[in-house]
Design a protein around this nucleic acid. Structure first.
Lengths: 206, 206
DNA sequence: CCGGATCCTCGGTGATACTG
DNA sequence: CAGTATCACCGAGGATCCGG
């Protein structure tokens, strides 16, 4: 018997499914792609393992997450979003955009993960500004390196470097206004928040 | 000292502010308009009063909610969203749309509130379909009566009846597909989910 | 009636340790 | 690697009370 809100309302139903602590952060990481238990654990450093196991079970029961045996080489398990779960993407992006406004400066012992930065980049992507563009970026946030490829007005972001990147960005200051969309990349460079390497021609918008 | 997620991420920050139990439902009700403590309590029947008081305090500290002395006639207090808090509207609407898919049929002892139905109507509103329209609706969900006015492509929904309504809708069955946008009003009527009174000419879309 | 404050209980969370 | 087991603790949930 789970806790309910006693309301016949879509918002209440949604919160009964993904409103528990940690649940939406798990969904955020899974929006990047399928993850193993240990991958999720690495991305959510403060989550107790029993809570992670419980959340995954609940999300699986709710049809948000699917548990899959890993393909051939490595035996193991991966968790991935169902189509239903993937429909949470606009909600997560909206939450991220709202929360980025009060992000401030990283607090003591607060970490940056590749998955969260990947979703942050997706948050700020403006398809209209990217029409007809074909670029590869490599972004460095501390030790975290992710790559972004823009092609045909769509954005693909993933972890790791991009050897043939047209442009390499390195964050050197508080980049939260950039993530919140309150600052353009050009302004960010002027303020010394981002250092770039490569061809500045590709600095249209992200 | 509050609980944190230990992540430098907009989603995590947002959940630290509005991710606690009941918080987003309070915001949902306040999106309809300012409420008094007792109004909120009525709309969230299962919330303990100490939790409601604590959430309001936290949301006020976070700059999401503002506490206001009530205007002249009645002395008292109202809580209203700040501009920052009101920016959560797209997130709430997205959550409501997602949750409405698995809304099912009202569970035992599950109630329908005016505020939740008002937000549900806002969820389904499609500005493009309402262009040039000027209509007044009155909607009945059990004992809950709300009114909707469409003018100049915008929607205004409020609690209570609308004496000069062009159209009166009464829900008679499981209306969740309608709320989720999976069903058109016309189809809903054919299935006997909604009974209408008035001039069917106004049945374009909501 | 409004706007809480207070007390108590119980279960989930969080930390750590341990196992197949 | 992928969890399960144990346990302390604190916040949710429920009831009652209290000053305007």
């Amino acid at each position: 018997m789970k806790r309910t809100y006693g309301q016949f309302c879509g918002v209440a139903r949604a919160l009964e499914v993904v409103g528990e602590r940690w649940a939406l952060l798990i969904v955020r990481d899974l929006l990047v792609g399928p993850h193993r238990f240990t991958d999720l654990r690495r991305g959510l450093p403060k989550i107790p393992t029993n809570i992670l196991a419980a959340r995954l079970q609940e999300l699986e029961d709710a049809g948000v997450v699917r548990r899959c045996a890993l393909p051939r080489p490595a035996n193991g398990v991966v968790y991935e979003l169902t189509a239903y779960g993937a429909e949470l993407e606009p909600v997560i992006l909206g939450l991220g955009r709202w929360g980025a406004q009060s992000l401030g400066v990283p607090r003591e012992a607060e970490i940056v993960t590749a998955d969260s930065m990947i979703m942050a980049l997706r948050t700020t992507f403006q398809p209209e500004a990217a029409r007809g563009l074909h670029v590869g970026y490599e972004c460095h946030f501390g030790a975290v390196v992710i790559n972004a490829r823009i092609a045909d007005g769509t954005l693909a972001v993933a972890a790791g470097p991009l050897p043939d990147a047209d442009l390499v960005l390195t964050a050197t200051g508080p980049i939260n206004p950039l993530l919140a969309g309150a600052l353009s990349p050009t302004e960010a460079i002027e303020r010394g928040l981002v250092r770039i390497t490569g061809n500045p021609v590709w600095l249209e918008d992200k």
